[in-house]
Design a protein around this nucleic acid. Structure first.
Lengths: 178, 178
DNA sequence: TTATCATATGTCATTTTAGACATATGAAAC
DNA sequence: GTTTCATATGTCTAAAATGACATATGATAA
């Protein structure tokens, strides 16, 4: 149900299309939320039925038409009510890589290293993307506190992950010597 | 489908009951996996049908009977195959608190502070639990590399989260002055 | 003495999520 | 010239996940 509030939060900042939301989840929110386009479009329909959001249809000449969603007053109220009244739930994380580490004792040092290098490459890419986004949005006149907080979180998260990967490489090298 | 591999990973380390798994997810894996007892019991049944695990029934006098699951050869092979062959998927995270930050601009400084304090308390508790678990398991003669890696990750994760919370408090205080 | 917690396992209905299928155009790459 | 990518929206089925319902005992706390 809280996909709904993730969407309300995004739309509260600026009117967006479903297609925009897909990109935002992938490019700027990977480290704290995710969904697929099928679920996003479906949920946006339900939210509009519930009068939380409304859309303006933009007919583009050559490109497909698009629906730009914005919050209704009801939507904004509901978002704030949720943030203040609903009890805080801990983050739900499913990190397959950390599951894979549980079987490192059965793998060779080479196998472990190539797995870790893959993760390092992925995380460095994410970090680059986040830093670019930070640079871009801080250069804008009006940049929201909320965005600043999540961007900074993303940077800290990726840096932590990278630090851990590098520590893990060293730890395994030492461990394998015995 | 990867709950299956999370379970295989846990059982690979030591034979456990479904009840044990619930506790392991909550106490020692919160920062990288989660599930509920209903899903765990159901999945264990399916895995046993597929000959990945087997159980030994332990009849306890006063306490309820329990099923201690261990890996079969097929199960161990399948776990290693998965770890090496299946493409690495990025972590799937749903962190409601970071969604709540997107609406901080609409909240009062007091509201924001109490939300952040709640998170800090939660994360400090998790960090304490993880550190205790590390202390406990490192004191044992045979402690696995895999566990060491995930414990260290958990500590780094919680510390990062706490650092961010404290940074956020300062940032908001400064921001509110203008 | 009564209620709650820990142990231990299960089912069932509903909701959420993932992934495939579906369509259409323009631009850029090869 | 053909394929692939970006734009843009949608549906549908199957799988995964949640939360409630269900049971039973012993220990501990109020």
């Amino acid at each position: 149900m809280s996909l709904r509030y993730a969407l309300l939060g995004i739309i509260a900042k600026e009117p967006v299309t479903g297609y925009d939301v897909v990109k935002i989840f992938k490019q700027r929110m990977t480290y704290f939320w995710n969904s697929t386009h099928s679920q996003i479009y479906t949920e946006l329909h339900k939210m509009e039925d519930n009068n939380l959001i409304q859309h303006e249809l933009v007919v583009q000449g050559t490109l497909p038409n698009k629906k730009i969603y914005s919050l209704t007053d009801t939507g904004k109220k509901e978002l704030i009510r949720w943030a203040l009244e609903e009890p805080l739930k801990p983050a739900k994380i499913k990190d397959e890589f950390l599951i894979k580490t549980t079987i490192f004792p059965f793998l060779s040092a080479d196998d472990i290293n190539s797995l870790l290098d893959e993760v390092i490459a992925r995380e460095e890419k994410t970090l680059r993307m986040t830093k670019e986004w930070k640079k871009h949005f801080t250069s804008q006149e009006e940049h929201s506190v909320g965005t600043m907080l999540t961007v900074e979180y993303g940077i800290k998260y990726s840096e932590m992950y990278l630090e851990w990967c590098k520590w893990a490489k060293q730890y395994i090298q030492k461990d394998m010597q015995h």
